[in-house]
């Protein structure tokens, strides 16, 4: 019996505390449109640095928050305001996560 070679894949470390993503990069990473990303910022799910969309910088923790809020909206039928609150409370409950 021949064994199938197992591919070796480089894992990319996601630095949660580094604010490196601009608005366009954030939308690309989230595979979402600008409107959805703006809503996520306005409701407080995402917390960019910078004063205006041109100057906003996001961390990969924002990617996690956005994904978490999407799951909560979809599975628990929350609205974005509720999801933002839930994301914040969940972070307070387990500060080590993600």
């Amino acid at each position: 019996m021949t064994s199938i070679p197992v591919p070796v894949i480089e894992a990319e470390l996601v630095e949660d505390s580094t604010f490196t993503l601009d608005f366009a990069m954030l939308c690309t990473q989230l595979h979402c449109g600008a409107d959805e990303a703006l809503d996520l910022v306005h409701y407080g799910v995402l917390q960019p640095r910078g004063q205006s969309p041109q100057h906003w910088r996001f961390s990969s923790l924002d990617i996690y928050r956005a994904q978490l809020s999407r799951r909560l909206v979809r599975d628990l039928e929350l609205d974005l305001a509720g999801a933002a609150l839930a994301v914040e409370l969940l972070e307070r409950l387990s500060p080590a996560c993600p």
Partner: peptide, 22 residues
Amino acid sequence: RRLTVKIPAGVTEGQRLRIAGQ
């Protein structure tokens, strides 16, 4: 499907690794 993932040195608890396309 089996994958071997290379974990970079210096990861800490709670950090995330992204494996593109998997």
